[in-house]
């Protein structure tokens, strides 16, 4: 990582000042700026004023000033990576502790469920992964994905959840998605990689996507700090599944709606009636009650289609 990154913040600094702070020439500063931009860091230039990072950039210093809990105490702000899940997995193998966070401005192989691509735009979204090391056995973790979705809703303060954990805007467009990957040996969970992609600023959003700034005034680092705090709180709430499910139902955009669910067994349509205690979605079709543990849910008559 460039030494310059540690010196940049949201106020402009002249190239000269940066050069003397780093003990290098102005040309060297200029070269490092070009490198940072290429990697995806939102470095801005204004004639006569110098350089700055786009306001709200989630630098370690900015996050540290806002951080409330232990999630994010160990934090890396990266430019371009294959995927933050991959980086964090290597950290996990090296023994990184719970709550470690990797955020990247650009992912070359960002992915969602079943290897689907997840696009993120440098400077506009929050794409990061959080390391969890649950002390509970895997069978006690069925609500973890719902807890992650709920934390997204808590932190954003807008929209609702499409089962299990997509955050949708009030008009049904996708604001954020979650990908959870666990490493399991026997009944033991070695770690869980909790990946989140959240659209904060409008850019070239794909069809059916929305950005948080359409609904609220936001800064990326504030959203990140709040989200880490909410994740930690909802993660702790796994010990009280009833309260978690009660809150989850409150913010569900899925319950009470007609849904189309695509599973590996085919497509079914019906009324989403309940969230089972194990987190599964209960769908009532003409003659059958379906208990959905995995599948793509489409809310019929709502813009936000399948993920």
């Amino acid at each position: 990582m460039s030494a310059l990154l540690n010196h940049l913040h949201e106020h402009f600094q002249s190239g000269e000042a940066l050069a003397s702070a780093l003990g290098v020439s102005r040309t060297a500063v200029w070269k490092q700026v070009a490198e940072l931009r290429k990697a995806g860091y939102p470095v801005e230039t204004q004639k006569g004023r110098g350089y700055r990072l786009a306001p709200g950039s989630p630098t370690p210093a900015a996050l540290e000033a806002l951080r409330k809990g232990s999630f994010g105490a160990f934090y890396a702000y990266l430019g371009t990576v294959d995927s933050t899940q991959e980086v964090l997995k290597n950290w996990a193998l090296d023994g990184a502790e719970e709550g470690s966070v990797v955020l990247a401005e650009r992912q070359l192989k960002g992915r969602g469920r079943r290897g689907r691509a997840w696009a993120s735009e440098p400077g506009r979204s929050l794409t990061f992964s959080v390391l969890l090391r649950p002390a509970l056995p895997l069978s006690a973790l069925p609500l973890l994905p719902l807890a992650a979705g709920l934390a997204l809703r808590d932190a954003s303060g807008v929209g609702g959840l499409k089962w299990p954990n997509d955050l949708l805007s009030p008009d049904g467009r996708k604001l954020a998605g979650v990908l959870l990957e666990a490493q399991v040996s026997g009944e033991e969970v070695a770690w869980v990689l909790l990946g989140i992609g959240l659209n904060v600023h409008k850019g070239a959003l794909p069809e059916g996507a929305a950005a948080l700034e359409e609904f609220l005034e936001v800064s990326r680092v504030r959203v990140l700090a709040r989200l880490l705090e909410c994740l930690e709180a909802r993660y702790a709430q796994l010990a009280d599944p009833e309260a978690l499910l009660r809150d989850y139902r409150t913010y569900s955009y899925t319950l009470g709606r007609r849904v189309r669910v695509t599973t590996t067994r085919g497509v079914l349509e019906g009324q989403a009636t309940e969230i089972a205690p194990d987190g599964a979605l209960v769908v009532q079709s003409a003659d059958t009650t379906h208990h959905i543990g995995a599948g793509d849910v489409e809310l019929i008559g709502f813009l936000g289609g399948s993920q």
Partner: peptide, 28 residues
């Protein structure tokens, strides 16, 4: 094994040879 979009990568607890795979892809 996927449950509620939690992708659980199941590790082998032993070294050895895979003799049988008893479930097919996509099966509940």
């Amino acid at each position: 094994i996927e449950a509620m979009k939690l992708m659980n990568e199941i590790e082998s607890e032993v070294s050895g040879v895979v003799r049988k795979i008893l479930v097919s892809n996509g099966e509940p």
